[in-house]
Structures are given as C-alpha cells and as structure tokens.
Design a protein around this nucleic acid. Structure first.
Lengths: 242, 242
DNA sequence: CAGTGGTCTAGACCACGTA
DNA sequence: ACGTGGTCTAGACCACTGT
C-alpha cells in the first residue's frame, strides 16, 4: 500500500485504496458475514498505513452498512438480521399497530428467458435465463402484496429448488455469497387486474401501489429485479428525504 | 469550549458541542444561505479546539446538506438551488425524456384551523390557525399532481398574500429564515375522486399516488405538511434504499 | 484489567481554485 | 503565490465491553 503507487495518474487517496482493498477481501469471502475484523491497529500494520487512515476507510464502509462497529467489542461484517431488513429494505408500515416481519408464501416459479425489462434492469442480454419466484407477503393474517422476483440463473445455481426461507437476502448471502447493500425503487399507482385481485383478495380495478426494485451487491452490480403490487388500505410506503 | 465542561454527566464529544454551536449560529442567522464560513483554522482558533475537531463537525453538517464544502474555495451555507430541489425533494421522474423543474400554479388558499391530521403532523393543537395553498404542478405542459400545503400561521407571518414563487423552500429560507433540511413521506395508492379528476384531467376512479409529506427545519421541528395526488402514467416516484 | 473502538491534538504536506 | 479544504501521520488519552 504505497501512497505514491499511482501519484500522477488521477490521484486516489490512501484511504480509498484501503477501502477498496478491504472490499476485495469482503467480496472474496476472507471475512464472512458476522465475522470480526482485525483491530484498527492490526490492519494498519498489515497495510503499512496509519491507524487514522484505516479508520477513515472503516468509517465509510460502516456508513454503507457493509460493516458494523461496536465500541469495546470490535468491527464486524454486517449481517441481515431481521431488524435490518425490516427497516432498510421493507418500507411498508401498518397504519396502526405493531410492525411485523412480513411472512412470505411461494406461489409459483415461472422461470424462463429474461424479458426486455429484466434484461435492462439486471444488465444481461434479454433471453438469458433467469430464475423467478412469485410469492405473497403477509402482515399477520392479511396478504398485503404479491411480487415476482427475478435473478440471473448463472449467479444463482440451484435457485430453482430452494424451499421456503425466512429472508431471501440472508439466503443470497449464505448460499451464494452475494450481499445486497442497496436498492433502487420505482413506484406507481396502478389498477388491480384479474391476477392482482386473485392474489390480494381485492376487487378488480382497485388502486394498488406497484413497486419495481433493482437490488445491488457490494460492487453495485444489479443482482435482483422484483415487481410488487401492494394494497395500501392498511399499510403505507415510507420514504425519508434527507 | 471546554472539553471537561460536562465530563461526568453523559459525556458529549467535543466535536458534537462544536457542531451544535455552529448550528446555533446557522439558525440564529449569523451566517445566511450562500455565505462563506470562516476557514477551519480560524474556527478552530475561535472555539479553542484543534482543526481536526472542527473538521469533524463540519463534515457532519456537510453530510446533512446544511453546509457545502468546495476544495480550494471554502465552506458555504447550503442554498436551495434548482438542482438540489430537483434531486433531493422532488422524487417524481419522467418515464422518458428530460427531467424538468416542476412549474407550479396556485389554485386556492383555503386557510383555516388545523385539522387533526395537520395538528399531529405539525405538532400543534388542532384548531390552531394554518395557512394553506392548493396548487398544481406541471411537467412541461402536463399537470402531473395537485397538492395542498399547510404551514403554522404563527411561524409564517404574511404567508397569506405571497404571490407565485419559483421554489417554495427557497421562499421559506429567504422570507422567514426557515431552512428545510429533511422530510418524511407516506405513500399510498388511491382512486381519483371528483376534485382529483378536475385538477388532474383524469377520469374519476383512476389510480393516483397519494403522498403525505412532513418537512422539518434544521432543528428537526416539523414546519410543513403537504398532501399530494399524482398521476403516474407518465411519471414515477423514485426511492433509493441505502 | 486488557483489548477494542472513539476522540483529540499538532503538525506536515497535497490538491484545487483564484488572483 | 496564496488561501482554502483534503489527506496522512504518530501518539495520547477516553469510553465501552468482556474476562
């Protein structure tokens, strides 16, 4: 880790190089989710930089929720605990009452060649094989949304016969070593068609919130596309502008 | 600025105290939007702390978009330029084509006592007077949403006769010294009623995106409640989960 | 008590913008 | 050339956690 290694061309601060080096270790699997990293001083010694520089790199990875730091304990690779999913990736909240973890119920697995939309979202050629799962999600006893999830088949070997799972992003991490760190959503109001009405138990023509999501891994590569239709009579979508 | 001033009780890091001190200067109007702050070294001397500590405080205020820093130029109080509004507070984007600044057209001013919803959102007693403006917003020639904005009358003296304005948050800042720094939105899909249909030029019963927003000032005090109904045939709402 | 992250300092040097 | 923010260092000390 030499400060002058790319001095003239571009100029990348040392801490950026450290951050990218740590990211490489993370995506290569040197440190698994939940594992504790070496201490700041130890990393600084390993990499030949000062402790303050390592700290700046670790702070940025913490801001991206890739790491979790706990004073007195250490620095850990972030996991997909229930609470994180509930707050970071599931934006539907009940109008009143307790927030619950959304239980899911698989309905179909209509895998096949990628549509134009899926291809564009996942940056793969349309026609490339994708695995798909169609499922309902429940808040207590009520179906609040149904959605189709599509992932590129080549990055998810064996996806076609996964059983029910409590948390799909945890599954991505444990089974395929793919960590979802961010997502981008597009929201629209649409009218329920026949399928929507069947899945959600609402009248045809009632207003639904349609959410299209593209989820990205640690390297900002898109790895999942999902299309959800939500009832918003008992729930709302929460968005914070900061 | 004494590091030991509240040693036993709680413990607040020095940089937090510096940050709050700077915030006080900002909300008291010592530094107006667009103004340049003293340099890091000068602030450090003024406050009797090291430059690194000032830097940490400034970095946090920059992360909250309260300040803007430009290498080689200085540190400035953030303003509501068009681009900032367009990206930070206006989340509707066209399905295709250029992103435009949403022109607004005032329709009515139905001011009066706060409803229960407004009171809860603005943390004031229901029945307290609020100013309201109902307006349409346009993307090019098309009306894409209409909304009602409510603000507490006591913090916005003279609001009842403001003319058209290009940007309402800029108006809040310049006329009342109130800077909006964050907002929280609740989204639902609803059916267009008669009023919606008239304002938006769409059929009664067509699906609309309803957005309820509470906007906060620099001290996290709610200062505005707005209720918008949006057509999402040509536009979508963009949400980033990070 | 030992080990971890968190804060704070003082000073050096670099990159950027402007004059 | 100068002043600004940005990076980097080395070292000290504090706060928190578990043994």
């Amino acid at each position: 880790m030499d400060a002058d290694s790319d001095a003239k061309v571009g100029f990348r601060p040392l801490y950026v190089q450290v951050r990218e080096e740590l990211k490489r270790h993370l995506s290569s699997g040197r440190w698994q989710p939940g594992a504790m990293l070496p201490s700041e001083h130890e990393l600084a010694r390993e990499l030949g930089v000062s402790q303050g520089t390592v700290r700046k790199a670790l702070d940025e990875l913490t801001a991206d929720r890739i790491l979790v730091r706990r004073q007195g304990r250490g620095t850990f690779v972030a996991e997909f605990e229930e609470s994180r999913i509930l707050f970071q990736f599931f934006r539907l909240r009940p109008n009143a009452g307790e927030r619950l973890f959304p239980v899911s119920r698989i309905r179909r697995r209509p895998s096949g060649p990628a549509t134009a939309t899926e291809g564009a979202a996942l940056r793969i050629e349309p026609g490339t094989k994708v695995w798909r799962i169609a499922r309902q999600r429940l808040h207590g006893p009520n179906v609040i949304l149904w959605e189709t999830i599509a992932v590129p088949a080549d990055r998810f070997a064996g996806f076609e016969d996964v059983a029910e799972f409590p948390n799909i992003y945890q599954l991505y991490a444990h089974r395929w070593g793919i960590t979802i760190t961010s997502a981008s959503e597009q929201l629209r109001a649409v009218s329920a068609d026949k399928t929507d009405a069947d899945e959600l138990g609402c009248p045809v023509g009632s207003p639904l919130l349609r959410i299209e999501r593209v989820a990205f891994d640690i390297n900002k590569v898109p790895v999942e596309y999902r299309d959800s239709r939500c009832r918003t009579d008992q729930m709302y979508y929460s968005s914070d502008l900061t």
